[in-house]
Amino acid sequence: MQTSALKPIARLLTKELLIAVLLLLGVSLVVFFILYLAPGNPFATLAGKRAGSNWHQIQDNEPSGAWYAQYLHWLGRVVQGDLGHSTRSGLPVFNEVIKTGLNTAFLTIGSILLTLLLAVPIAVYTARKGLTAIGWGLTAGSYILAALPSFWFGYIVIYICIHQFGVFPLAFGADASQWRGIYFLLPVLVLGLCSGTLSEMVRYLREELSRVLTEDYIRTARAKGASIWKHALREGFVLPVTEMVAAKIPFVLGGAVVVEQVFNWPGMGRLAWQAAQDRDFPMIMGITLMAAVFVRTGSLIKQVVHICVNPRASQE
């Protein structure tokens, strides 16, 4: 965390920015091409079969062309900061993506925090005590939870809460003021438990922590009367947690699509689902870019943490 970490971080940020630009180009190109190949078009869904197959033509009075010409046209507008308008709602894509993106970020971060909240104590307990009966039970429990399909578990949770207890209203996000309260807890709970991340986190954190606890320098820490947990914190905890969170963001985002659908959560996942149904091409492109930025940001944060914790990583 000393000043020596600042230079490598600055270097990393420049490198990452460059990579991010290339990555966004690549991702958008691939997705655009897939959309071009995909059957259907926005106006067929809106206006029926008679609609033309070229969405630029109608939206912007632009001439149609080969797919790469359409891509370059789209790219030219994106560079100017214009992601276009939704073919379905006519709203600007950028605003929609940011608005729903924040909701999804909220859901994703919340559920990852919940996963950590469960995974860390289990991992620490089993790393310390070994697989005792309790440790084994906790580990098995984490596997079972991770194996539950979130769409099914989501409906079960809704059913239990609403029909048995009458606790949660059905219409999440129907009213902007309504989902501010505790209503966001259910989707966070379901995504946190069932995204498949929990068991992997438990396993990875346990392996890393128990490996680090047998390192020579931990023995030295005991020999000098220091806390082994304090010394194991960086390598045995901070590094694997950031590693795992960064690696799991894409999976959790994928899980969010389903969970948002189940809970009618006004997030990017539900928007993506809708946009795919509607062949809302500008929206799909916008969401794709946003998701790529999400994932890349996660990995960037991970790398910054690594540099701060482990000065060796910065000297490569």
Partner: peptide
């Protein structure tokens, strides 16, 4: 201890 590079905390 022997092997001081591993016996001291590499992160501190």
């Amino acid at each position: 201890f022997q092997d001081p590079k591993n016996a001291m905390n590499p992160f501190v």
